[in-house]
Nucleic acid binder design. Structure first.
Lengths: 131, 131
DNA sequence: ACCTTGTTGAGAACGATTCCCGAAATCAGG
DNA sequence: CCTGATTTCGGGAATCGTTCTCAACAAGGT
C-alpha cells in the first residue's frame, strides 16, 4: 500500500513550484535550504515514484544527472528545452507518435516507446550569449 | 594537435566491428579479452573523442551507462533500438528534422538539436519473451 | 489505542566516469 | 636517423550521482 507522508507531498510541491527540469540533488538542496529536514534518499525515492506514476517527467541529461519536472499535461508529450537556462516548453505532436509507431511496426518491433526531445537556445539566452 | 596512436585506432575498429550499442566498459572488456592491453581510461577518452568528431553515436540509456555505436551513415539520423537485445536500426526521417526545426523556431529557440530514439522489442525478442 | 507494515534518513556501498601524474610514444625538424 | 617538445597512455585513486541497508518511525486499518 502507498502511504501519504508529508515528505512525498513536500517533494511533489517543491517540484511543482518550478517550471524547469531539476536534478534530484538540486531539488533536495533547495528543500533543505527552505528549512525541510528531508533526506536525500527520500527525495530520490519520491521522484522516481512520481516519474513512474506519470506525475513527473524524467530526463537523463548529457552530464549524467537525471532531471525531473512536474508534468503539466496529463497525456504523452515531448519537450523543447533551453540548453542554457533549462526553460521547458511542452509539445504535443501527434505526427511524431504516428511516425514512431509506423517505424517500429515497419521493422517488426513491438511495444514502441520513444524519446523525442528538442534542445535549443531560447531567445533570452541567445541574446545573452551574443552580448 | 591530435596524434594517431594505435590505441585510438583499436577503439575505432573495435567499435566498428559491432553493429549495436556498447558501453565503454563492455568495449574495454571485449578488447582486453581480445588481447589488447589498452586501459579503461583510454577507451573512455577515445570514445568521447569519436563521439565529438561525429564518428560515433552516443546514447545515454536509462540505466546510467553511456552507450556508443560506430556511425554508419555519415549524416544525421536516428535509431530504432531493441530494448532487449540492443539490435539497432538506423532511421532517416526528414520529416522529423523539419518538425523539430519548426517547433524550435516557433518558440524562438535557436540552434536546435534533437534527440529522437525509438525503443521497442524486436520480433526475435518478442518471441522469446512470449515463449 | 494497537498492531502491521510501508517509509524514513544517515551513511555506507556501488558503479560509471574522470582526474592525476610519471612513463612512454608520437611527430616535426635538424 | 636522432632529439626535443608535447601529447597520450594507463593504473589507480578520486569524484559524483544514485541505490542500498537497517533500525527507528509513523500511517492506516480495525
Amino acid at each position: 500500500m502507498k502511504r501519504n507522508t508529508w515528505q512525498r507531498t513536500a517533494v511533489r510541491e517543491a517540484l511543482g513550484a518550478r517550471d524547469d527540469f531539476v536534478s534530484a540533488q538540486q531539488l533536495h538542496a533547495s528543500m533543505k535550504a527552505g528549512g525541510s529536514p528531508i533526506g536525500l534518499a527520500t527525495v530520490y525515492r519520491a521522484l522516481s515514484d512520481l516519474a513512474e506514476e506519470g506525475d513527473a517527467d524524467a530526463l537523463r541529461a548529457g552530464d549524467g544527472e537525471s532531471r525531473y519536472r512536474a508534468c503539466v499535461s496529463a497525456g504523452h508529450h515531448h519537450h523543447l528545452i533551453c540548453r542554457s537556462c533549462g526553460r521547458t516548453v511542452e509539445i504535443q505532436a501527434d505526427d511524431i507518435e504516428h511516425w514512431a509507431a509506423g517505424v517500429a511496426a515497419a521493422h517488426g518491433f513491438r511495444d514502441p516507446q520513444h524519446v523525442v526531445d528538442v534542445f535549443g537556445t531560447c531567445a533570452a539566452c541567445a541574446e545573452v550569449d551574443g552580448a
